[in-house]
Amino acid sequence: MLSPRSDNEVEAIYLRQRMTVYRVCFAYLKNPADTEDAVQETFFRLIRKVPAFASEEHEKAWLIRTAANICKDELKRRYRTHESLDVHPELQSEDGSRTSDVFRAVTELPDKYKAVIYLYYYEGYDSAEIARMLRKPKSTVRNYLHEARKLLKERLGEDFYEG
């Protein structure tokens, strides 16, 4: 239970979850340099704390919560001017930037909504599952989703709807 994980185990978790962790961190920090640091710190904590996981879902939930806490601490500790999203090539979509508008709108949501939006829309979890992962009441998660969708609709215009 308390034995350090082997190199293979750590590497397997890293390769399995790094994109998830990266996307969550980027949503908070909005620039690749800080995101890279936050991703590394998330996995450093995994190595130090050696948490026990009942499943890969549990593993993902732990990493997302840890990454979110690291990012929130970073945002509290330092004020910095975020680079414009326009300079990041990965955000330039081929169809004329619709997806980058969407992502920009998501990153501009209040911090408390970001992890919920990511888990709901990207990972496909329902509100009950998200509530367990983030250790929040189900009613809170439903409120966050409702409020976040309202804000996205305001920012993205009337053609925003849920399919």
């Binding site: 980027f26 590394q40 955000l91 980058s100 829309y121 925003f160």
Partner: peptide, 25 residues
């Protein structure tokens, strides 16, 4: 806009190869 647009927007967020290698290392 459908759910896929939000998913597509997240899909584009990924580290470049150099950053991926740095983090892994």
């Amino acid at each position: 806009m459908k759910d896929e647009t939000i998913r597509e927007s997240w899909d584009r967020i990924r580290p470049d190869e150099a950053a991926d290698a740095r983090m892994h290392g």
